[in-house]
């Protein structure tokens, strides 16, 4: 085992104290350099002047940023208003085109199985409903659009709407003023009178709220619309 000499112990203590002393001295010196009050006055005045300049530069920058922010906020809010108007217009056209399901007051017209209905009767009924202010119409939950095909299919011997056979009882729903819609159908010499000749007696019910589903969007090949 290594024997520690007496003097080695003393030397350790002395060097330890010396270390502390050097540290303290270094710190003091550091504080002295960092302490502004101990700097030359001219330097301090110069520093203050520079700080003033920096401050006014920053203030200008902030003003500029505020101005930009205001412009952006205006643009953003104007854009939001424009987008809102566009969405409103889109919704209106989607309702008109039958691309969204709709609801509202109206009437239902029910035609039972025994009726010798022909497709032109449906065309007449639809025309009368549109003339009476109908806003949306469906036949057996098929939304009527500009592209709805109503015809007599000679191959299947069936009244056909959009390639689907019309099943009975046939229910026509129309949204609009219920009174006006019914009155239109009941006009003297109108649709119901014509149907009665063929012993077709549709049942008309006024409804507070009916729902009409959406149609598929059209697929157009030949049209090229210009704006």
């Amino acid at each position: 085992m290594l024997k520690i000499d007496k003097w080695q112990g003393y030397l350790f203590i002395v060097l330890f104290l010396l270390g502390i002393l050097i540290t303290v001295q270094f710190r003091t010196q550091q504080n002295f350099l960092n302490d502004l009050t101990l700097q030359k006055t001219e330097d301090l005045v110069m520093m203050l002047k520079k700080l003033h300049d920096k401050r006014s530069g920053l203030e200008k920058e902030l003003q500029e940023l505020n101005r930009q922010t205001q412009i952006f906020q205006k643009d953003v809010s104007e854009g939001a208003v424009l987008a809102e108007n566009l969405r409103h217009e889109l919704k209106r056209l989607e309702i008109a085109l039958g691309l969204v399901p709709v609801k509202g007051p109206g009437i239902t017209i029910t035609i039972t199985t025994e009726s010798p209905l022909v497709y032109l009767d449906l065309v007449d009924i639809l025309n009368e409903l549109w003339a009476s202010g109908a806003e949306a119409i469906a036949i057996n939950d098929q939304r009527i659009t500009s592209w709805t095909k109503i015809y007599w299919d000679k191959n299947t011997f069936s009244l056909t709407i959009n390639d689907q056979e019309l099943l009975y009882p046939c229910t026509i729903k129309a949204i609009g003023d219920p009174g006006q819609l019914e009155a239109g159908l009941r006009l003297v010499g109108g649709v119901l009178d014509d149907l009665a000749i063929y012993k077709i007696y549709p049942v008309i019910t006024r409804e507070e709220e009916i729902e009409i589903p959406a149609a598929a969007p059209p697929v157009l090949y030949y049209i090229s619309g210009s704006t």
Binding site: V76, A83, E89, L90, L93, A96, L97, I223, G225, S226
Partner: peptide
Amino acid sequence: GKKELETLQERLRQLKVWAGLTEAKGP
């Protein structure tokens, strides 16, 4: 927002053609 506006305007152009609000040409 600009991108959304463009999308909406594109859709509106489409719907206007379908709704007959534009002159139509074709065979």
